[in-house]
Amino acid sequence: MLKLQEFVDFIFNEIPSIYLIVGSTFLFLFMGTMAFIVRTKAAKRPISPKRIILPPLFMSTGALMFLFEEFRVPFPQVIEAICVGLLFSVVLIITTNFEEKDDKLYVKKSKAFIIILFSLLIIRFVAKLILSSSINVGELGGMFWILAFGMIVPWRIGMLVKYYKLKNSIEKTS
């Protein structure tokens, strides 16, 4: 653990914050593009409760960043990040729907998803540029993780509810 803390200290003390901001922005753009590609491919496979629940569970490992002081976020900013995440999740819940094909459920392709994804990328980029002048990079990373987690968990719960409603209505009509 000490070696990892030394590495984190080196990153935050020796590398100018602008490089961290630019690097993390490119990484986020790459991850956003990958999310779009994965989502497009996933729409070709049937959805299941397991495939709905696993992404937030995998993402939850990111909470380990809060073991390090550099990433800890003051409570008012935690509340702000969660509220913004909840707001974004509402849009995702509304635009994520399912359809039945061959007795299996699939995520319905949505043109709104690409617009939402790139809008979120742009909003995040602009917010990062603005906030990076008043909030340190580690804390900002923690805030954006909280925002993303606060968005994905309600979205996936909403997906699960829609999945079971559609599944139950299909079973009733069969």
Score class of each variant (00 low, 15 high):
P74D: 03
G62H: 04
M65G: 07
T96H: 05
L121S: 04
F118N: 15
N97S: 06
E80K: 05
V126S: 13
K109F: 12
R72M: 02
F113E: 04
K128D: 01
G62W: 08
G142N: 14
E99M: 12
T40E: 09
T33K: 04
K108Q: 13
I135H: 14
I53P: 15
K165Q: 06
V126G: 10
I79M: 08
F149Y: 10
T95M: 04
L131F: 09
V90G: 14
V8K: 02
L166V: 00
A127T: 07
P154Q: 02
R72H: 00
F149Q: 11
P76I: 00
I79L: 12
F12I: 00
M65P: 12
S133P: 05
F113V: 08
E171L: 09
N97Y: 00
I152G: 11
L121D: 05
G142L: 08
Q77Y: 08
W155K: 10
L117A: 09
A43R: 12
K111S: 03
F12D: 05
V73L: 06
M159N: 10
E69Y: 07
E99I: 09
T61P: 07
A127G: 15
L67F: 11
I170T: 00
I79G: 09
K109C: 11
P49K: 05
L117H: 07
N136S: 12
I37V: 12
V126Q: 13
L131V: 02
V153Q: 14
R124T: 14
P49Y: 01
C83M: 13
D102W: 03
K162Q: 11
I157Q: 15
M31D: 01
V161F: 10
I21M: 08
S48G: 07
N13W: 06
F58D: 01
E70P: 07
E70V: 00
Q77D: 06
T25K: 01
D103L: 13
R124W: 15
F12P: 11
G141C: 15
V8N: 04
G62I: 12
S89F: 04
I47N: 12
S169K: 15
R156G: 08
S132P: 09
F58M: 10
S24C: 09
V8C: 03
I15W: 03
F71G: 08
L117W: 14
I135E: 11
L92Y: 15
F36R: 05
I116G: 10
D103S: 14
E80S: 09
I18W: 13
